[in-house]
């Protein structure tokens, strides 16, 4: 897929909570958004931050073709993402896109499919869920977070399919971690998961136990995002491979996780 370096204008910056922002971006040049697959990510240059040197990788949360806009869901993790969440409407940011591979299409439309997102890891699941829905599948979601206020974009997910929720403090949905949610006792054919590494490993383990297929989206540290520096590697059955080009989505069968 052809990659582009494009300037985007921030059309809206919705502060979903004190640490999360939803950025709505449009190409500043008036170009049409390039083709983007669910699961892909962008590399953003954060010029306003004096201490952020490299670009930062962020998942594509949603692509709104009708409005020619792209959504990014950002969590303040440090200096770079703090700047990003604070960007005023109208500012211009430089982005390289689209990067990485994408989720693979489930085998049958009748399959029971569960998209699991933990914290900001819900980001790629919105675009992937809407894509599945448009193509005749019935995705369900399992969103996990510390507390009700950290469950992001709930109404958007509800518009696509059934949403199950786990919160650690029990303020919404079932109390506990996603891996102890009762939905995982049902017959599920395929699980797609994005979230913190310990959560993805725990989900992968459950998937193995219940005999479901499972793909996870990894967030390794990246420098180039283009397959040039070999900094972002994950150990797989094929040896060290770049998460930025052969991932970020991997089938758990390809990984060497001890699960």
């Amino acid at each position: 897929m052809k990659k582009y370096i494009l300037d985007f204008i921030i059309e809206d910056n919705q502060h979903l909570s004190d640490i999360y922002s939803l950025l709505i971006l449009k190409p500043a040049t008036g170009d049409t958004l390039p083709e983007i697959h669910p699961g892909q990510f962008v590399q953003i240059s954060i010029d306003d931050s004096k201490t952020t040197f490299l670009r930062r990788p962020i998942s594509i949360n949603y692509v709104d073709r009708n409005n020619n806009s792209m959504w990014l869901l950002v969590r303040k993790a440090g200096e770079g993402t703090s700047h990003l969440t604070a960007m005023p409407i109208g500012s211009v940011i430089n982005i390289i896109l689209p990067l990485g591979n994408s989720f693979s299409i489930p085998e049958n439309q009748s399959d029971r499919i569960l998209l699991i997102g933990g914290g900001v890891g819900v980001a790629p699941m919105l675009y992937w869920g809407s894509y599945l829905k448009e193509h005749g599948y019935n995705p369900e979601f399992l969103l996990g977070a510390r507390s009700a206020k950290d469950i992001l974009e709930l109404e958007y997910f509800q518009n696509i399919g059934t949403v199950h929720i786990s919160t650690e403090d029990g303020s919404l949905g079932e109390k506990g971690l996603v891996t102890s949610h009762s939905i995982l006792k049902d017959r599920i054919s395929m699980i797609y998961c994005c979230g913190p590494a310990p959560m993805m490993k725990a989900v992968a383990k459950v998937a193995n136990t219940i005999g479901a297929g499972c793909e996870v989206s990894l967030e390794n540290m990246m420098a180039c995002g283009l397959g040039a520096c070999l900094c972002c590697v994950e150990n797989t059955v094929k040896g060290n491979v770049c998460v930025c080009t052969e991932g970020p989505v991997f089938n758990i069968n390809q990984l060497t996780w001890q699960i």
Binding site: N220, C229, C231, N235, N240
Partner: peptide, 16 residues
């Protein structure tokens, strides 16, 4: 090559 992690950003640069 070496095991991950292989990169960390540092002031005006990076270590690999």
């Amino acid at each position: 090559g070496n095991p991950y992690p292989r990169m960390i950003e540092t002031p005006s640069g990076m270590l690999n």
